[in-house]
Each structure stands twice: as structure tokens, then as C-alpha cells.
């Protein structure tokens, strides 16, 4: 019994070390991190329109679209579809997404659609698409906004992050759309 009592005391003391002092130290350092460790936000005219790292739903035709999401981009939660590669229902859904995408972008060939535009991300909050995924939407967005295609294309190209040594090329959809809104 005396033994258990010392273990309880020991536990409480190391709780202080690992669960109070350590997180508070990190919290202290966070005050010097971007946006004081509250998550980086993007503002338009002083109003926060989103978090830089968190994807948003775009389904209006005058915006670039992101990936399908299993949680509809509500970042109160997160989740993937968890569908297996051979699941028939899932494959039918992907086929439907391809068909819809082709109806909205009638100028495209099927083989130009990159896989991420018709498959759900792991988090349901993926902020990125591939450069190809953005470039194939240029014609639609330009037409919808009555902008020159070349101008919109140049904007997309300026928003492509190409990895120098390691990584994948990405386009942040929210940042692209914020810049698009400012394009005259």
C-alpha cells in the first residue's frame, strides 16, 4: 500500500513535468510562431476568409474547385471516405464524378483529368490540387469571369509550388481563388 502511495505521488510529479511544464513551454514558444500558434489565416479586406492550410468547398462555377471531400470541408471534424479500391459503389461514384466533371468542362478529354479531382482526400480538408488539376479549369473560370484565358492561366502558373529537391508540385486552391477575386 505504501508502495502504491509513492507511485501516485511519483505520477503526479511527472504529470507536472510532462503535461504542464512541457506543453506550457511549447505554448510560450508558440507566441513567436505565425499567428501565435492559432493557425495561419488568410484575410481579404481585413476579414478572415479561411485558414491557409485548411481546404474549403468551392462549387460555384466562377471559382477553381478543390478535391471531393468526405466531410464536405467542414473543419470542425475531418475524415476520408475509407472506401476500398475494389468497392463497386465507390467505383460508380468516381465514374459519376468524372462524368459530371466532363459536363462542366466539355472541352476536356477524359485522360486530362488528374485522379485527385475525382477522389476524396485523406483528411477531407486537403487544401491543394495538382498544377494539372488547376490548369484544366482555366478555360471555364476565364469564361465565367469574362477574363482573358491567358491572364487566368498566368495567375495559376504564378501559384504553382514546384518542389526544388523533394516533394510534390501543388496549388493551394484558396490562395488561388483569393488572387483570382483580385484579378481585374
Amino acid at each position: 500500500m505504501k508502495n502504491i502511495f509513492s507511485i501516485v505521488k511519483f505520477t503526479l510529479l511527472i504529470v507536472v513535468l510532462f503535461a504542464v511544464i512541457y506543453p506550457l513551454a511549447v505554448y510560450g514558444i508558440a507566441q513567436f510562431a505565425p499567428n501565435q500558434g492559432k493557425g495561419e489565416t488568410i484575410s481579404v479586406n481585413g476579414k478572415v476568409v479561411g485558414y491557409q492550410k485548411i481546404g474549403q468547398k468551392f462549387d460555384q462555377s466562377n471559382y477553381f474547385w478543390g478535391r471531393p471531400s468526405a466531410v464536405d470541408y467542414n473543419a470542425a471534424g475531418s475524415g476520408g471516405s475509407n472506401k476500398g479500391a475494389s468497392n463497386k459503389e465507390y467505383l460508380a461514384l468516381v465514374q459519376k464524378r468524372i462524368d459530371t466533371f466532363l459536363i462542366v468542362h466539355p472541352y476536356l478529354k477524359k485522360s486530362e483529368i488528374p485522379a485527385e479531382m475525382v477522389t476524396a482526400s485523406g483528411s477531407g480538408l486537403d487544401p491543394n490540387i495538382s498544377p494539372e488539376g488547376a490548369l484544366i479549369q482555366v478555360k471555364r473560370v476565364a469564361k465565367e469571369r469574362k477574363l482573358a484565358e491567358a491572364k487566368v492561366k498566368a495567375l495559376v502558373e504564378s501559384k504553382i509550388n514546384t518542389p526544388k529537391i523533394m516533394g510534390t508540385p501543388t496549388v493551394n486552391v484558396l490562395e488561388l481563388n483569393v488572387a483570382l477575386d483580385q484579378l481585374k
Partner: peptide, 12 residues
């Protein structure tokens, strides 16, 4: 469609 990078379901 183009699976240029590979399987994207459930990937970021």
C-alpha cells in the same frame, strides 16, 4: 483518367 502520381483516394 490520368493517375499521373498514383492512387489518390485517401491521400493528400
Amino acid at each position: 483518367i490520368a493517375q499521373t502520381t498514383g492512387s489518390m483516394e485517401g491521400k493528400e
